[in-house]
């Protein structure tokens, strides 16, 4: 009896359309983020994360409009990340109905931005997204570094120290993605997840590499994650959110099933 671990489906949205196609059977419009968010809500998702990959700045208004639409119809927490660079960006997203805002590369370029954001809007709505990649050799002690630009650009920042610094600066939650595992379906980087979860006092969301339901259990039980984020296993209908929750509960993980 206590706090449940969370399952968070993630939608990649470009100019108001879900990309990397969601394939629900019988869905009217697979590209409509509102429709898909509703489906996930009905399926028992604990939160929804919306990653805005819109390249052009002019189309940002579309994003705000989409967030507004989702927030007026889906009554579970909504996190929006992608291209958040200014306090104004955060204000606009919160006003549109986002509950939490994810900050990624802007934190790397200017860590003070996270501090300012947490002071202005409260830690509870500031999620720092960390993209980490293993840089140690097999024979060495594990070491992970922060990468930007979709894992292409190293920053020299140690991932564990960085996560700790971000929570010192006021991040209320860490969204941790293993760039080694992202898209592989080989499971989370458990050692990385455990290292970060043990290092910070705030909740950690594990992301990157989920290929089956046991991976979700491993992220929580072995990795110590408070929540697990997945995209493709849900989007392509391999598993439903409800199946995932039942599987995790059966493995001894406390879940919200009511």
């Amino acid at each position: 009896m206590g706090l449940a671990k969370r399952i968070i489906p993630c939608l990649d949205v470009d100019a108001g359309r879900v990309v990397k196609g969601v394939q629900f059977v019988d869905i009217r419009d697979a590209g409509d983020p509102v429709e898909i968010a509703k489906r996930y809500n009905d399926a028992g998702a604990d939160e929804i994360t919306f990653l805005d990959i819109t390249a052009s700045h002019q189309e940002r208004d579309t994003t705000l409009h989409t967030v507004e639409q989702i927030a007026s119809q889906v009554f579970i927490p909504l996190t929006v990340g992608g291209g958040v660079r200014t306090l104004e960006d955060i204000r606009n997203l919160l006003n549109a109905g986002a509950d939490k805002v994810g900050i990624n590369s802007a934190a790397v370029h200017n860590p003070e931005f996270v501090r300012e954001a947490a002071e202005r809007f409260g830690s509870q709505c500031i999620v720092v997204a960390i993209d980490a990649k293993k840089v140690s050799a097999e024979s060495e002690t594990n070491r992970w570094e922060i990468f930007t630009h979709g894992g292409r650009k190293p920053t020299g920042l140690d991932a564990v120290a960085w996560a700790r610094k971000m929570t010192d600066y006021g991040a209320g939650e860490i969204l941790l993605t293993s760039m080694d595992r992202d898209g592989t379906k080989n499971g989370f980087d458990i050692a990385l997840t455990r290292a970060i979860a043990d290092a910070v006092p705030v909740p950690v969301i594990a992301s990157g590499g989920v290929g089956n339901l046991q991976h979700l259990v491993d992220g929580v039980v072995q990795g110590g994650a408070d929540a697990v984020l997945a995209a493709s296993i849900f989007h392509f209908g391999e598993y439903s959110v409800q199946e995932a929750k039942q599987f995790m509960q059966a493995a001894g993980v406390e879940m919200r099933l009511d």
Binding site: G2, L3, K5, D46, V202, D226
Partner: peptide
């Protein structure tokens, strides 16, 4: 025996 994360964030009974 582990440390509880704060904020208390998520679905509780």
């Amino acid at each position: 025996g582990g440390r509880l994360k704060v904020p208390h964030m998520g679905w509780n009974q």
